[in-house]
């Protein structure tokens, strides 16, 4: 593999005035042409990581470790202005909630043109043609009509297609999608995932896809990073991790995935207990209070990351290389 598009090395992130870091010692890489799925329960730090990759953490957040985009450390060497110049051109994002992501009082066409502001040296007609082309690529019917409409006149599925088109118009080297389908119904979700799968193919760079749905990872991603309470518990290729999960949390997530349950039951299995609060993290393994395989050592000592092969690791005392 050539140099990774995005490389995180021991990244910890603490919000201003938060009692503890929301993300701790996370390391992974995404290469050109790859799609990384980040999974984890609510509050595990997925959106925090996404914000960090965009350089959009709240002012006063504390980041340690290194987060490199094309070799440049976003938090070491770059100014606010440098970061801004990456956004909308080299790095683009698709938001979670299409209903609130767009300006409510501006027509879709004008918004899409504003999002292309880095390309405003191109003639207006060319920009408009690109917008139309992109709206067709995300399979939007009547793109001409849509461009003249306001967000409140459109459905969630259409709005999310618009958001995808907006991100693709940036021609990014890194595309970040933070749960782009959670606000949508199941049918629309399936359509949007299909469009995402196609869209990825046209990209020249890497994609980070955040979700809590293992079947989405299986469908769209090459690699996976499993987060639990701000820590990376397991990472590797989708085939390896889903085919042969090593960490008890990954196993539990897979057991709860409705798509993997063979006999339909009325109740979905869930992982017992809840994610510990930021200021109430256990001293030993962070998953210990909920872990079905916990041993005495887990309570006292946090497990290190064990390498299980190239770019494959798990953080659990029971895992041995």
């Amino acid at each position: 593999m050539s140099a990774p598009v995005l490389a995180l090395d021991n990244v910890s992130i603490r919000y201003p005035s938060a009692p503890a870091a929301a993300v701790r010692n996370v390391s992974f890489e995404v290469g050109t042409g790859e799609t990384l799925g980040i999974v984890g329960e609510s509050g595990s730090g997925k959106s925090t990581l996404a914000a960090a990759m965009m350089g959009l953490l709240p002012r006063g957040s504390c980041v340690t470790g290194s987060l490199r985009f094309e070799g440049r450390d976003l938090f070491g060497q770059m100014t606010e202005r440098d970061l801004r110049q990456l956004r909308g051109r080299d790095i683009a994002t698709i938001a979670q909630d299409p209903f609130t992501a767009l300006n409510p009082v501006m027509k879709i066409g004008r918004q899409l043109d504003i999002f292309q502001h880095w390309y405003h040296d191109r003639p207006r007609a060319e920009r408009k043609a690109r917008i139309l082309e992109m709206l067709e690529q995300v399979r939007l019917s009547d793109p001409d009509v849509r461009m003249q409409q306001y967000p409140h006149q459109l459905s969630g599925g259409i709005l999310q297609r618009v958001s995808i088109a907006a991100a693709l118009l940036a021609e990014p080297k890194l595309l970040i999608a933070d749960e782009p389908t959670t606000a949508l119904d199941a049918t629309t979700e399936a359509q949007i995932l299909g469009i995402m799968a196609e869209a990825k193919e046209t990209l020249r760079g890497a994609t980070v896809f955040i979700t809590h749905d293992m079947s989405v990872v299986e469908r769209l991603c090459d690699r996976i990073a499993v987060l639990y309470a701000g820590e990376l518990v397991e990472t590797g290729t989708v085939a390896e991790v889903l085919g042969n999960p090593q960490h008890p949390y990954t196993k539990a997530l897979l057991e709860c995935d409705p798509a993997r349950i063979e006999e339909p039951t009325s109740e979905l299995p869930t992982i017992g207990g809840t994610v510990p609060a930021l200021d109430d993290r256990p001293a030993g393994c962070i998953f210990e209070p909920r872990c079905p395989s916990a041993v005495a050592r887990c309570r006292a000592e946090a497990p290190l990351r064990h390498d299980l092969g190239p770019r494959r690791s798990a953080a659990c005392h029971l895992v041995t290389p």
Partner: peptide
């Protein structure tokens, strides 16, 4: 504080 403002920021608008 509305979410759509963040969209502009995420596209690098000043």
């Amino acid at each position: 504080a509305q979410p759509h403002v963040r969209t502009y920021r995420s596209f690098g608008v000043s």
